[in-house]
């Protein structure tokens, strides 16, 4: 069978919370992401899956404008992404910041309200209440006044998620939200993400644990520098496609929940 034909989903860009066309990103002369076309569907949970160095995080960062791409267009709900920032929340890898920064947990969550409070508007009780509600949602309300340096890895990740929730966005982009977190945190995070989906929000997450893809996600986008396939888990998370994405680097045992092909 032809991998490309089965894998590609054709959806109208106007509905898509994130539509990427012809995106190429290069550090130096070697492209990390090459000419990727992918249109993510609304109200779905999609995993971005691929081997190490396949450009998963780079794709997200380039789509958000954190890294400047060499070429490509990115749109959100039919408009250039830059105009839709208010509807998009991003959860970076927690290792990307210095956790010895002088801030309390609540301060970090309040950063998610920046678009509302702007440069000088006073922070009011309802802002704090909103931040506390987000902390509650990730099970961290008891930590609001802790210094962030005292948190465990899993707690840090939950604080980052709470900050994204505070934005009250429609599209949530997460970079490896389950990397290096404890089982309780993983459960808490997936609970929140499924809750978002139930509210009709869109969740797109870079994901590295093949064993949990089937349980957690609705759709999979396979990438290895170029786009390999995008579609429902049952159609795309198959040994054939995984072979195409991972080449010889994938032991069969690692495929875990992959449907037998």
């Amino acid at each position: 069978m032809s991998l490309e034909l089965v894998g590609r989903t054709q959806a109208p860009d106007t509905d898509s919370p994130l539509a990427i066309h012809g995106l190429t990103v290069s550090y130096g002369e070697k492209p990390a992401v090459f000419s990727v076309d992918v249109v993510f569907l609304p109200a779905q949970m999609t995993a971005i899956v691929g081997p190490n160095g396949a450009g998963k995080s780079t794709l997200l960062k380039a789509a958000l404008g954190i890294i400047r791409p060499l070429s490509g267009q990115v749109s959100s709900y039919g408009r250039p992404l830059g105009e839709m920032r208010a509807r998009i929340a991003y959860v970076p890898q927690r290792a990307s910041v210095d956790w010895d920064f002088p801030a309390r947990v609540l301060d970090v969550v309040m950063m998610g309200l920046y678009r509302d409070v702007g440069l000088l508007r006073r922070i009011k009780g309802h802002h704090r209440a909103r931040a506390m509600a987000c902390l509650e949602r990730v099970g961290m309300e008891g930590f609001a006044h802790r210094q962030i340096g005292q948190l465990s890895g899993g707690q840090q990740q939950r604080v980052f998620l709470a900050r994204a929730l505070a934005q009250e966005a429609d599209l949530y982009l997460l970079d490896e939200p389950f990397a290096g977190v404890d089982a309780a945190t993983e459960k808490a995070i997936i609970g929140v993400l499924h809750g978002l989906r139930a509210e009709g929000k869109t969740v797109i997450a870079v994901h590295h644990d093949l064993a949990t893809v089937t349980d957690y996600f609705d759709r999979v986008f396979l990438i290895n520098t170029t786009a390999i396939a995008e579609g429902p888990v049952a159609d795309v998370f198959t040994p054939d496609y995984l072979q195409a994405a991972y080449g010889g680097r994938l032991a069969l045992a690692q495929m875990g929940g992959a449907a037998a092909g």
């Binding site: 958000l64 920032r85 991003y90 950063m111 920046y114």
Partner: peptide, 18 residues
């Protein structure tokens, strides 16, 4: 506010449109 946000987490700041 913007300077603190950028000092702590520049990637997230860009995601917020800064």
């Amino acid at each position: 506010r913007p300077m603190i946000l950028v000092a702590f987490d520049p990637e997230y700041a860009v995601g917020q449109g800064m």
